[in-house]
């Protein structure tokens, strides 16, 4: 059935687009467009410099109810995670992505954290992941699936803590795509995450925590003193 349907649908489209008369030129134009994947207009706000990107990211992420903690270096990450959990009265037991980028942080310095590694489970309250990139334009996190970065961690827990290196902050979505192409692999899933889960389906009243995380906390890690401080934290 599907073969016959395929031929019928494509046949109808070829007739409607007059494909027979321009087949070679049209195929070349489509092939070229796909190969070049040229950018369209990037808004000015998606073209800021490094400092401007960090400021915009924080502003945009906070505007959609994410919280952001700025820390000056890798050594401060475990403490920032522990502080956040204490401040929100969340359990210290957490599920962490088996991600070597996260292993580089000195978790031993936050001995109260009870860390398990793996994919997200139904019983998880808190998950900690890294991010492939962060996109300043709209305060968006870009996460990709993989053996070290399971997608379920992004959706099953009540609280999702994302550790982002300032070096992974890009200006616009297109910068994120170029970074992904540079890795040479296309993962099963690319998640653009902008704030915690929400719904306004009941009487147009916006509420956080519909099906995904109720809380999205972003720990933004500078490359040393001075880089990310100065903004509010």
């Amino acid at each position: 059935m599907t073969r016959e349907s395929r031929d019928a649908v494509l046949g109808a489209l070829r007739r409607a687009t007059g494909r027979d008369s321009n087949a070679a030129a049209a195929a070349a134009s489509v092939g070229d467009r796909l190969a070049r994947h040229a950018r369209n207009t990037i808004p000015a706000r998606g073209q800021r410099d490094r400092r401007g990107r960090l400021d915009l990211f924080v502003e945009q992420a906070e505007a959609v109810d994410a919280t952001v903690a700025l820390v000056s270096g890798a050594a401060d990450v475990p403490g920032a995670v522990a502080d956040y959990l204490r401040g929100e009265n969340l359990p210290t037991r957490l599920r962490m992505a088996p991600d070597p980028k996260l292993d580089a942080y000195p978790w031993d310095e936050a001995p109260l954290l009870d860390i398990e590694h793996g994919k997200g489970e139904a019983s998880d309250t808190v998950a900690v992941t890294g991010a492939f990139a962060a996109i300043a334009e709209t305060g968006t996190l870009m996460l990709v699936s993989g053996p070290e970065t399971p997608t379920t961690l992004n959706f099953l827990p009540d609280a999702h803590i994302v550790v982002v290196r300032a070096a992974d902050m890009v200006a616009c979505y297109e910068d994120g795509w170029d970074r992904l192409r540079a890795t040479g692999r296309m993962p099963r899933t690319v998640n653009f995450i902008t704030g915690p889960s929400r719904s306004a389906d009941i009487e147009q009243t916006l509420q956080l925590g519909a099906h995904g995380p109720r809380w999205l906390h972003i720990v933004l890690v500078g490359d040393g003193p001075g880089e990310v401080e100065g903004s509010d934290g």
């Binding site: 709209t138 899933t189 690319v190 653009f192 995450i193 915690p196 889960s197 995904g212």
Partner: peptide
């Protein structure tokens, strides 16, 4: 500005 979750599945 952007929807909470935009997901690309391949």
């Amino acid at each position: 500005e952007f929807t909470s979750y935009t997901t690309f599945s391949t």
